[in-house]
């Protein structure tokens, strides 16, 4: 691969889920000489969502011309941003926060606000809504870096929990062992 004069783009695609979205999008990119970086692709509700790092010699406009027809064909919304690649610089999380409760407005806002104030840099957040329409529940897992230390986060969650006792929150350190 000639890395000269290639640029990184974040390609976002969102639409109704169907079989073959990933195969069709990535095949077109591959055949156009693009390389892929890190990606998150998952079904959220009935939608399929793609956030995909694409490395290409093409311009943003060329990439859009390449992808727009297939996005239209698959009825996906397409969005392209020029970005810095920054591969091979993974940050290692040192804390995991798991939350679950009855689903209601404000859980994410309340939890993440106190955590941000206590120095948590979120590297990854995944959440799901389970249960059924009359009794939905919300579950969330966060991995991140406690930039002000774990006790600060622990204290923040304890304070939150004293006001919101129906939210189950668990904080645990992640110790990464290298072998």
């Amino acid at each position: 691969m000639n890395l000269k004069e290639t640029k990184w783009f974040m390609v976002t695609l969102v639409g109704k889920d169907q079989i073959g979205i990933v195969a069709k999008i990535t095949t077109i990119l591959y055949e156009a000489g693009c390389n892929l970086g890190e990606a998150s692709m998952l079904r959220l509700g009935g939608n399929f969502t793609i956030m995909l790092m694409v490395n290409s010699q093409a311009s943003s406009e060329d990439l859009e011309k390449l992808l727009q027809p297939i996005a239209d064909n698959l009825q996906l919304h397409l969005h392209i941003d020029a970005i810095d690649g920054q591969l091979h610089q993974h940050q290692v999380p040192n804390v995991r926060v798991s939350v679950h409760s009855a689903d209601r407005a404000g859980i994410v806002a309340k939890v993440t606000t106190v955590l941000a104030e206590a120095g948590l840099n979120i590297l990854e957040l995944e959440s799901d809504v389970g249960g059924n329409e009359t009794k939905p529940f919300y579950i969330m897992q966060i991995e991140g870096i406690a930039t002000l230390g774990l006790p600060a986060l622990e204290l923040a969650l304890q304070t939150l929990f004293s006001k919101q006792p129906d939210i189950e929150v668990k904080l645990e350190p992640i110790e990464t062992m290298v072998m």
Binding site: H90, P93, V178
Partner: peptide, 13 residues
């Protein structure tokens, strides 16, 4: 469950 890294697998845990 625990998080692992490896000298033979750089920049990934």
């Amino acid at each position: 469950i625990g998080r692992e890294g490896c000298m033979s697998v750089p920049d990934y845990t």
